[in-house]
């Protein structure tokens, strides 16, 4: 057993239940993700992987159960408190990056920090530093002119800029070619080790899934795999 499992988990999901008007997505779901650990979530389409991520982000209210991040229960938080908590503790990488193409990569990354209330100078300095660290060109060209891989690296930098200990990623390599996919996957799976954060990544890509510390499959509302 690694040291990280001796500490309390950064993300702790207990008996989570969620259903839509006519489908029960999950009934009593449990999941722990520790700092410095990467976990991938696989499973057939429509089983609720993205919904689970939105529950963790607090954008979707579960029917039952608890979601604890850094020891605090999100399900009982007010909207304002949740927003503040999310800005501080969670970063998200989307499938298509969801960047503003007219802004430069530095501006896109700094934007998240500015909206989280960071100081302007610190936000831009940190954005530059992060992008340089992740190998994104800093020539000031609009993000629209970057390659797919560079755009996803920028999206990763944006998720990291607030220093969030929990990084969520929803199909981050789904729209990339093989080389870009490998480079982005390398970057993402290095994060827990380099930054001691927790990574929960949703993917259908078996090659990407194989790089994680643990793999869980969401099938028929249950997580199958190695639980920590």
């Amino acid at each position: 057993m690694l040291d990280r499992y001796r500490c309390p988990p950064l993300l702790q999901i207990e008996n989570l239940g969620y259903s839509t008007s006519n489908t029960r997505l999950f009934g009593g779901l449990d999941l722990n993700v520790h700092q410095g650990e990467s976990v991938v979530l696989c499973g057939p389409s429509g089983t609720g992987k993205t919904t689970l991520l939105t529950c963790i982000l607090g954008l979707t209210k579960p029917k039952k159960g608890r979601i604890l991040v850094a020891g605090e229960d999100l399900t009982g938080m007010s909207r304002r408190r949740l927003a503040s908590f999310r800005r501080k503790h969670m970063g998200m990488v989307f499938q298509f990056g969801e960047l503003l193409p007219e802004l430069s990569p530095v501006e896109n990354v700094a934007l998240a920090a500015l909206l989280a209330g960071a100081d302007r100078k610190k936000a831009y300095d940190l954005a530059r530093h992060l992008l340089a660290d992740l190998g994104v060109p800093l020539d000031g060209a609009p993000t629209a002119y970057l390659s797919g891989g560079e755009r996803q690296r920028t999206a990763v930098a944006r998720a990291l800029i607030t220093g969030a200990p929990l990084i969520l990623a929803d199909e981050p390599t789904g729209a990339l070619d093989q080389d870009s996919r490998d480079s982005v996957a390398d970057l993402l799976f290095e994060l827990p080790r380099r930054r001691n954060c927790a990574l929960l990544l949703v993917t259908h890509d078996q090659a990407v899934a194989a790089r994680a510390d643990r793999r869980l499959d969401l099938i028929a509302g249950r997580l199958i795999g190695t639980q920590a």
Partner: peptide, 15 residues
């Protein structure tokens, strides 16, 4: 639409 994800995650919709 392009700025929606960021606005939602940071809860800064008024901007």
């Amino acid at each position: 639409a392009a700025v929606a994800p960021l606005a939602v995650l940071t809860e800064r919709r008024r901007f």
